[in-house]
Design a protein around this nucleic acid. Structure first.
Lengths: 355, 355
DNA sequence: CTCATGTTGCCAAACGTTTGCACGCTCCGG
DNA sequence: CCGGAGCGTGCAAACGTTTGGCAACATGAG
C-alpha cells in the first residue's frame, strides 16, 4: 500500500478525464512529443489537466527519465554571508531551466563532506557544484564525479580532479593584498591563514608570502590555520599572532576571509589597539556588509554572484552536452581599499609602544 | 530506454551477488524489516552491498514509499545574511533524520512564490517551511498545505492559514524599539516599514506606533513600504522620509530590518548627517555582523538559529505523527542596544538646524 | 479495389524500490 | 505420523511516469 498524497491527481486521472490513454496524455503534455498527437487531442488533454490541477510527479518522472532536475550545491558554511549571493546567482541561473537547488553544508569537515556527497548521489542529482572541497577530498571527488553527470568546482579548485572550475586567481589576490600593505610601508606582516589543505588558501598564502619577500619585508607566522572561516577563528588566530610575536609585532595582517578579518579586528579592539592606526587589516571576499563595518574593511573582492552565475552556465552546458569540455574560468582578483588599512605610521607606532 | 547512470549498482545487483531475491535484499537492508530475515542472510546481503558500493536510489524509494525525505525551505532573499543561520539550524535539525533541504527564494514576489510552491509540490517534498509568506498568499498557502504533509511558517505568520508557526512577538518588538527611542527623548520618530501585506511588519509597525502615541510623541510617516529587505530600499525610504518631512524631521527611525537600517545610515551619511548624533537608527533582526558595522547597530534580536531549530522540531514531530497538533511558538523579542541610537540632543539638533 | 503511406492513439514494458501474500521448511506437541 | 505454528524467503504487484512498437484507421495513388 502506498502513502500517496490524498488528492494528488495523476496523469491517469487526466487521461481518464480526457478520454485518452495515459500514454497519449503523457505525450500531449510533453511539448517535445506532442507533435505526434493531433491538435484536438492535445487541447482536450491540456484542458483536462488544467481543470484537474494536474501536476506531474517529478519523482516518477525522475525515476523513468533518469533525470531529477536537481542540482546540489555544497558550501562550507551557510552562516558566512559570502555564500548567499553565490547560491542565489547559481539557483537563479538553474531555475530558469527548471532545475532546483539542494544546499548542504560541510563545516570544513571531511566526513561530513563525504556524507553529503553520498546523499546527493543517492538522490540522483543531475549536477553538483561544490565550494567546499579540500585537497584531501580529491579521491572522493573523483569517484563522485564519475557518477554525477556534471560537477563543477567553485571558489576552491582541486588539482588533479579533472573537474571544470570557476575560481579566482587566488595567488594574484594574495599578491594584491601584499602589494597594498607593503606600499603602505608596513615592514612586518602576518597572515591569518584559511584552512590548510585547500589550494585556495595556500595560493593566497603563497602569493602574499612571495610578494612580501620580494619587497624585502618580513612575514611573521604562527604556523596555524583557521579551522573555519568564522569570527571566532579570526580572533583566535589574531590573538596567537600577537602573543607569539611580542618582540616584533606585525603592523599589518592579511586575513584569508572577511570573517576572519572582522574577528581579528575584534581582538585588536579588545586589546585596546586600534585598526588601522596600530594594525592594518585586509580581508578577502568582499562579503555583503563588510564595507559598512567599523572600520570599513579593505579587502580583495571575490565576486560570489559572478562565480555562481558562471558555475550555473557550465552546469547547463554540461547538461545539454555531457561530452562537452567546458572552459574553466579564473577570474582576476580585485583590490578594494577602504579604511581598515592605513600607511604605517612609524612615529605613531613608536609612541604607542613606549606609552 | 533509460538514461540511467552507468555504473549505478541497484538492489537487484546486490541481491544477485548475495544469491537472494531482491525483496529479501530489500528487507535485509532495512533495519525496520530485517528482523524477519535470518542473521546469516542479513550479513551476506550487507556484505554484498558494501562490496558493490550499493547506494539506494532515493528516487525509486520515494516513488514507492511516497516519501522523499526532502523538505523545502522558502526564504524571501538569500542575500540577506539573516537567513543563513536560520537555514543552517533547520537543515542541521533535519539532516539528523536523513532529510535534505531544498531552498528557494521569492524576492517578495507573489508569482514567484506560487511557482516555488508548485515546484515543491511536484517534487513531493515531505515538508516545507516558509519565511516568505505574505497575506495575499494565504489561499495559495492553504491549498498547498492540504497537499504537503507538514508545513510550518517561520518568521512570518499568516492569520487564518491554520498552519503552525514559529515567530517572534513582533508587536512586542515594535514596542521595544519605540520604548527605547522614546526613553532616549526623541520626540519625532519615523519607521522604515517592511513589505506591506505582511503581518510581521504590520505588527512591528503597530507596536511601534501605539507605543509612540502612548508616550505622546509623534510619528511622521511617508506611507510607503519597502519592496524588499535590502540596502537600497533602506536608502530610498530614508531619503523619502527626510525629503517629505523637512519641516519636522524625525530624529529617530525604526527600520523593520537591519538591512534597511544600514541602507538608511548610508543615506544619512550621504547627506552629511551623522548617526546617531543627528538621527538614531534602530534595526531589526540582529543579523550577523550588524554589531560590527559603523556605528554598531542597535536592533531587536530575531534569533534565526532558534527559529530554524524550532521549525525543524515541529516538522519532525509532524512527520512522525501527521495528526499531531504541534504547538506554535512565539519567541519574546529582545532589545540590543549598541551605538546607532543615542539620546536626543535638543541643543545639538537645534544648533544643526539653525546652522 | 488494393496497397503503400501517414497519422493517431493504445499497449505494455520499464525505471528501482517496497511490501502483502503465500509458499516451503523445520520443529514440536499430540 | 499428522497438523499447526513459526520462521525465512520468494513472487509479483504496485508507485506514476515515459516511450518503442504496433494496431487501427484514413488517405491517395496506381
Amino acid at each position: 500500500m502506498t502513502r500517496g498524497r490524498p488528492g494528488a491527481v495523476t496523469l491517469t486521472d487526466v487521461a481518464k478525464a480526457a478520454n485518452v490513454h495515459v500514454s497519449t496524455a503523457s505525450r500531449a503534455l510533453d511539448p517535445a512529443m506532442s507533435f505526434r498527437i493531433s491538435a484536438a487531442t492535445v487541447d482536450r488533454v491540456t484542458a483536462a489537466a488544467a481543470r484537474l490541477g494536474y501536476m506531474p510527479d517529478m519523482i516518477a518522472q525522475g525515476l523513468k527519465r533518469g533525470t531529477t532536475t536537481m542540482v546540489g550545491v555544497i558550501v562550507p558554511d551557510l552562516a558566512n554571508p559570502f555564500f548567499g549571493p553565490l547560491i542565489r546567482a547559481l539557483s537563479e541561473q538553474l531555475e530558469r531551466r527548471g532545475f532546483v537547488t539542494l544546499v548542504a553544508e560541510t563545516l570544513e569537515d571531511h566526513d561530513r563532506f563525504e556524507r553529503t556527497l553520498n546523499h546527493l548521489l543517492g538522490r540522483r542529482v543531475n549536477a553538483a557544484v561544490t565550494t567546499a572541497a579540500r585537497a584531501s577530498d580529491r579521491d572522493l571527488l573523483r569517484r563522485f564525479a564519475e557518477r554525477i553527470p556534471s560537477c563543477v568546482l567553485a571558489v576552491r579548485n582541486i588539482a588533479g580532479s579533472g573537474l571544470p572550475y570557476v575560481i579566482q586567481d587566488d595567488r594574484q589576490g594574495g599578491e594584491l593584498a601584499a602589494g597594498h600593505l607593503t606600499e603602505l610601508g608596513h615592514d612586518v606582516l602576518a597572515q591569518l591563514h584559511g584552512p590548510s589543505d585547500t589550494a585556495t588558501f595556500t595560493e593566497r598564502g603563497e602569493g602574499f608570502r612571495r610578494t612580501v619577500g620580494a619587497a624585502g619585508r618580513v612575514e611573521v607566522s604562527v604556523g596555524e590555520y583557521a579551522e573555519g572561516l568564522t569570527l571566532s577563528e579570526g580572533k583566535r588566530l589574531m590573538a596567537l599572532t600577537l602573543d607569539r610575536n611580542e618582540a616584533n609585532p606585525p603592523t599589518a595582517v592579511f586575513a584569508h576571509a572577511d570573517l576572519l578579518a572582522i574577528g581579528a579586528i575584534e581582538e585588536i579592539d579588545r586589546r585596546g589597539l586600534r585598526c588601522p592606526q596600530d594594525i592594518s587589516v585586509i580581508g578577502y571576499d568582499d562579503a555583503p556588509l563588510v564595507g559598512h563595518i567599523q572600520p570599513p574593511l579593505s579587502t580583495i573582492a571575490l565576486p560570489g554572484g559572478e562565480i555562481g552565475r558562471r558555475a550555473g552556465e557550465i552546469i547547463l552546458q554540461l547538461i545539454d552536452d555531457p561530452a562537452a569540455q567546458p572552459d574553466s574560468v579564473s577570474l582576476p582578483a580585485q583590490l578594494i581599499v577602504r579604511s581598515s588599512t592605513a600607511p604605517y605610521d612609524r612615529d605613531g607606532a613608536r609612541r604607542d609602544r613606549t606609552a
